[in-house]
């Protein structure tokens, strides 16, 4: 599955590295990437095109936990309905808290 992530990072030491580390660890590869510092130099906007077999919702959650990440948005190429969990399966999520 291919997935786009749009992240807004606080521009601090190691931020981009941490994002790429989480992407790798959680089972995705980078196909394309662009990063731009904002005019004030305090934020870095990162766009990633990724591919991987794992659940992209979880990747988004893992990225969102990073201290340097202010915001993550995700767009999948597959219709949202068919986004299934990898190996693990079973019931659909009825309510998310």
């Amino acid at each position: 599955m291919k997935v786009f992530m749009q992240l807004s990072l606080f521009n601090r030491e190691g931020g981009l590295e941490r994002v790429l580390g989480v992407v790798r660890l959680r089972g995705f590869q980078v196909m394309e990437m662009a990063a731009h510092q904002n005019a004030q130099g305090n934020a870095l906007d990162v766009t990633l095109k990724l591919q991987g077999q794992r659940e992209s919702d979880n990747l988004k959650q893992q990225l969102n936990k990073l201290y340097d990440v202010e915001k993550v948005e995700m767009f999948t190429m597959a219709p949202a309905k068919s986004a299934v969990m990898t190996n693990f399966s079973q019931q659909p999520m009825a309510a998310a808290g």
Binding site: D57, Q61, N64, M85, S89, Q91, M93, A96
Partner: peptide, 25 residues
């Protein structure tokens, strides 16, 4: 089993098995 999963970390909810209900908090 269906799962009710309660945790503070949103990334744990549905990481390995989809809960029927996830309660973050």
């Amino acid at each position: 089993a269906k799962l009710i999963h309660l945790d503070i970390d949103p990334a744990e909810l549905g990481k390995l098995r989809r809960p029927a209900v996830a309660v973050r908090g």
